[in-house]
């Protein structure tokens, strides 16, 4: 094993609340690793602990072979951390923020500029603009530049694309892919399930516990449910009517369709006839392939 991040029986608490409960996880060097889970699952707590900003209640972790508690100073120079909330200095300009972060880590902007050049190029047009006046997508690019300026071995990105549009998100993932190709290990959390598919491996986390760690394809294979896609002229009514059928275990919206998780005795033709009998028109119920999102819903829905 070549684990660059090694988390072992890690627990964390806020008062009486267990934020992380016996979490163990290994991330390999050079891996693009996703952490997905609902709000309050413990994702940000995990990041804070790895970034040495919060001590664990029990258990521990090492980063690049360094202990996150004992060797916290050394850990900090090896990681680049981009927190969930925008955390640059809003009153400093684009250029000043970058210089400031370089100075904190004792490096020169010039020496490491090659690493951030593809990202920073889009910001160069307005070096004097205050960081607070940048748009969402640009803030995110500046934050990533600042997290990279000391050439860390590991990037910790906590929901970096929340509030970012689909086109900019694609660009951002292209950037992550190229950083990975340069040997940087990346831990990224997200609430977009399409992004989970872009990771080599993902850990699903809920209520402080790891529900599963594997490649997206192997996790989806664990779904193990009969799944159908359904459509009709009135989707909300269709949702209500399908939920009434005893053979339908779960039914939820899924883009232009509904997804229905059904038991073995479900007959799609019969169900379609019943829906039409309820007054719905243009009913279609066809077999569907499961996705990460279906698995996520299955694993977390009952608890909320």
């Amino acid at each position: 094993m070549n684990a660059i991040v090694d988390i072992s029986h890690l627990s964390a608490r806020y008062g009486r609340t267990m934020a992380l409960d016996d979490v163990s996880l290994q991330v390999d060097k050079g891996e693009l690793f996703g952490v997905i889970g609902p709000d309050g699952a413990g994702k940000s707590t995990l990041y804070k602990i790895l970034a040495t900003l919060m001590p664990p209640a029990s258990g521990g972790a090492s980063v690049c072979g360094l202990d996150i508690v004992k060797d916290y100073r050394d850990v900090r120079s090896r990681i680049g951390y981009m927190p969930e909330r925008f955390s640059l200095y809003k009153d400093l300009s684009v250029q000043e923020n970058l210089k400031f972060f370089a100075a904190l880590f004792g490096v020169s902007v010039k020496k490491n500029f090659d690493l951030i050049a593809p990202i920073f190029r889009q910001l160069e047009r307005f070096p004097d603009r205050k960081a607070g006046a940048l748009s969402g997508g640009m803030k995110q690019k500046l934050a990533l530049s600042c997290a990279l300026i000391h050439r860390p071995e590991i990037l910790l990105l906590d929901e970096p694309t929340t509030g970012v549009d689909a086109v900019s998100r694609s660009e951002f993932w292209d950037i992550l892919q190229s950083l990975k190709n340069q040997g940087i290990t990346i831990l990224v959390s997200t609430s977009y399930m399409d992004e989970a598919n872009l990771c080599e491996r993902i850990a699903m986390i809920d209520r402080g516990r790891i529900l599963g760690t594997d490649t997206p394809a192997r996790l989806v294979a664990r779904l193990g449910e009969r799944l159908f896609a359904a459509r009709a002229d009135n989707m909300f009514r269709l949702l209500e009517e399908l939920r009434r059928l005893p053979q339908v275990k779960e039914c939820y919206t899924f883009g232009a369709n509904l997804h229905a998780v059904v038991s073995d005795d479900f007959d799609p033709q019969q169900a379609a006839r019943m829906m039409e009998h309820c007054g719905l028109k243009g009913v279609s119920i066809t077999p569907a392939e499961g996705t990460i999102e279906d698995l996520f819903i299955k694993l977390t829905a009952n608890e909320q």
């Binding site: 889970g37 609902p38 709000d39 699952a41 929901e159 929340t162 509030g163 609430s191 399930m193 909300f236 949702l239 939820y252 919206t253 999102e293 996520f296 819903i297 977390t300 829905a301 909320q304």
Partner: peptide, 20 residues
């Protein structure tokens, strides 16, 4: 205005049912 930004798939769906 972006009512579901950063919200997980289950919570987002519940919210949309409220909208419906």
């Amino acid at each position: 205005d972006e009512p579901t930004g950063g919200v997980d798939p289950v919570t987002r769906r519940k919210f949309w049912e409220l909208i419906y």
